[in-house]
Design a protein around this nucleic acid. Sequence first.
DNA 1: GCAAATATAATAGTATTACTATCACATACT
DNA 2: AGTATGTGATAGTAATACTATTATATTTGC
Lengths: 228, 228
Amino acid sequence: MKHLLQTIKIEVNKKTYLKDPESSALGKRIVEHSILLIHEIGFEAFTFKKLGDRISSNESSIYRYFENKHKLLLYLTSWYWGWLEYQLVFATNSIADPSEKLRIAIEIISKPVVLDTSFSHINEVLLNNIIINEYSKSYLTKEVDTENKEGYFEIYKRMVLRISEMIIEVDQEYPFPSSLASTALDGTLHQYFLTQHFPSLTNCNKEVTPTEYFSHLVFNSLNKNTNG
Amino acid sequence: MKHLLQTIKIEVNKKTYLKDPESSALGKRIVEHSILLIHEIGFEAFTFKKLGDRISSNESSIYRYFENKHKLLLYLTSWYWGWLEYQLVFATNSIADPSEKLRIAIEIISKPVVLDTSFSHINEVLLNNIIINEYSKSYLTKEVDTENKEGYFEIYKRMVLRISEMIIEVDQEYPFPSSLASTALDGTLHQYFLTQHFPSLTNCNKEVTPTEYFSHLVFNSLNKNTNG
DNA sequence: GCAAATATAATAGTATTACTATCACATACT
DNA sequence: AGTATGTGATAGTAATACTATTATATTTGC
């Protein structure tokens, strides 16, 4: 599996970058250290100037890779969802039983992220934290409809669609498969945020995982046999 | 009820403002038009200079009411949650049956907002839209822990706590009351956002309301009698 | 191994933002 | 009438979010 993964490149929408950061050492350093720096100071305080200083490179050089920090965020988040989608597909592909498949899917999207050595310049643990803290800022903008049309959220949408299809496989009668899938995906990020900053608003913690909560939530919604 | 409401003032944390905007005509105009302008151009593009131009007043005058636009957002969002909390308490207070109480609570937090004439300078419909599009930006910051300690999110937390308590009343055994309450509150905003911008990721629309979805979700999670 | 192409770095410059400070004027209150 | 308070106008600063230009490396193609 390691060998297989080494040859994999996560495909993100080419419009997120001007020049593919995977195509050069500087590009990879930009991505690597943007994750570290955004994690450290937050997306609002993050600037290309600061990143340039950090990697002993120049602001203008970074602008040759990314139009602006918003596009960089779109790149990072797309990469993350592409990476997670890969995990999802890999883990659920061979499972025949619909319930077991959905169970594993929920586990994949809600379990704590661990480092993946296949992508050495990307720290998936910190990137996951950036997703928790910054992802919604990538779509809560006035440009969301334009950018959606341009395909910047394709991978995320595909993730929701996949989970939604798994839900339908478990219960054809369930009336809200897309909503439940999007709630699980968005809700997971939210529950992790709450454990970090508003522990009184969640029951998730070191012992109780979001996976338990969402498994309970999803499976109790399904096969209620409302006609029976 | 109208009479009663007219004497009500929604109490927000005094630290959100330097001078109470309710205390003067200019203050009310600032609040009124900040809602219109943020709704129009989004929080990122919103500046005190633009707001000053809009109300034929001066940037510096607005700075006398609010330290910065982040604090103004905290003011607006606190006001909104305070207003919604009032609706919640008013609507559920006299209900004895725990299930019915919770049902009404879910309805209150998830139904479309309509104009409340009791607060003439505040357009609750547009404010609700600002909450949907901007609320998470008020806490997805590096300052969240400090600001949380300073009480800026008290009303929101109280809302979650109230709903969580109602959940417990319906099912003492349910292991995730806080998580379910926070999922319902945050999830509602998310589902409304999806209907507007990512309709393929939700089943909510003109016919199917978030209320139906979340009622189904919550009540099917409860009283599963896992020990039986 | 050298020229040409390309990538990167350095510098400068612009418009806007997010403020702070000062002063002038208007009104309100006593 | 005199003082306090609120508001408006102007100016100024540091930082941001870029763009443009030029210089200097580095790579590559022959």
